[in-house]
């Protein structure tokens, strides 16, 4: 079995995997980082979104071996020194989650979205969420949470 090495949430990690092992399974099974979820098998639901080299990708649509040498951030890596990331805090404040299953992917997508797009309005947020499905919230409070986090982070930068 090939071995793979990468940096996950700032920590150097390595492991033996089959070539067919998806990045999400490496994270969940080898590293026991079970915050990243698998909700579909057609690359549509986005429960598996993580950041690879600073960009949101679907970890169910990437082989673990493709991430050799990469910097990977999962939802577990967002909290710094016990302090919630503003997006995490906004999801709680605005009730942007119910069952919580889609939440890690939603949050990772939101962090990426806010990084890329300085002025997020409701329409843009809804469009940017095309690759993330939620069955509980009807999206309304997810959109609200992202909008609020975006404003807060912009304020913090200014």
């Amino acid at each position: 079995m090939p071995s793979v090495a990468m940096t996950v949430n700032g920590k150097a990690v390595s492991g033996e995997v089959e070539t067919r092992t998806l990045l999400v399974h490496f994270l969940r099974e080898n590293l026991r980082l079970t915050g990243t979820h698998v909700g579909c098998d057609t690359s549509q639901c986005g429960a598996c979104v993580v950041h690879v080299n600073g960009k949101a990708v679907k970890s169910c649509t990437m082989l673990a071996v493709q991430a050799e040498g990469a910097q990977v951030t999962t939802v577990e890596g967002l909290t710094q020194d016990g302090k919630l990331h503003p997006v995490q805090a906004a999801f709680k404040e605005h009730h942007g989650l119910q069952c919580g299953f889609c939440t890690p992917g939603m949050i990772m997508t939101a962090v990426d979205m806010i990084r890329r797009i300085p002025d997020l309005d409701e329409k843009t947020i809804r469009a940017e969420l095309e690759g993330n499905l939620c069955r509980c919230t009807g999206y309304q409070n997810i959109v609200k949470a992202i909008e609020a986090a975006s404003k807060e982070m912009k304020g913090a930068r200014a």
Binding site: S43, V49, K55, A56, V57, T61, D112, G131, N132
Partner: peptide, 9 residues
């Protein structure tokens, strides 16, 4: 094309 995460790959 696709969604933002797909466009990154």
């Amino acid at each position: 094309i696709g969604d933002p995460a797909v466009r990154h790959m």
